[in-house]
Amino acid sequence: MKKQYTDDTFLARWISGELTPEELEAFKASGDYKTFKRINDKAQQLKSPSYDKEAAFSELLENIDAKKKTTKVVKLVPNWVYSTAAVLVVTLGILFFMNNRSTHFKTSYGEQLVVTLPDHSKVNLNANSSLEFKAKHWEEHRIVRFQGEAFFDVEKGTSFKVSSNQGTVEVLGTEFNVISRQNYFEVRCYEGRVRVLNPDNDIEVLLESGKAIRIVENKGETWVFNEVTPSWIQTGESSFINTPLKQVIIALENQYKVKIDVSGVDLERRFTGSFTHNDLNLALKTVFEPLDITYTTTGNNTILLKDK
């Protein structure tokens, strides 16, 4: 009996009266017909829940009015997008500018500063020194502009250049101390090897660890030392080996923020020794007593020197 409506639209066609007379006849003869007929008859007596079109329509009109009143105009591009965009542009601009800009570090009298470069190389800046570098593309161009005195601990990597007015130091990964001042350039190599370039005087030197060079009065002189790290970092005193007196005095001025009047002394002397950074009187004594120079403090933080 099932096969009569195995055709999957048979019953639908029966409902809509589309069966052929033969099909209908056969269906009527089947046992299922009675139930289906009853289902169909009853189902047609079903009614959907009552529906008041007029009421629904007037409700609809009210709803439309209410919507109109409360409807906000939503802009296609809300205002916050503009402000966000503006903030973004400014931020990106600043970031770009900052990225392209050099980073500056500067120490004043008596100050020291440890600067960590983007590749974790370290620079100890001594008093009255400045350092400048571009953080962007640092890995490719490791180059710093520098003036004053500093100790560099350079991580291995591409060529690292310290460029100053007095010369250039080029390394691959090492530790060294540089002093670059007016008419004075000094490099001490503590570890590895460094190349010191001073184009003005046509000097190009390869320094190994424990060796140092200074360029003073257009002449280069090298010497050997045996410190492991610069004393100005390690013990808080500056040490000198056969250093022109003028440079020692500049170092004193930088550490203690004093002016030293040198008009009364012969500067064509060298000094070997060190002075502390903590005690001006002791420092003056250690430097000038061995050289037979008297020092008197006047006003305005000036120290007057005189040969005995």
Binding site: Y5, D8, T9, L11, A12, I15, I39, N40
Partner: peptide, 16 residues
Amino acid sequence: VEKRMSLALVTLRKKI
């Protein structure tokens, strides 16, 4: 639609 209609009738028939 016709398939769903027929299926509905079969389902109803089974349930009843």
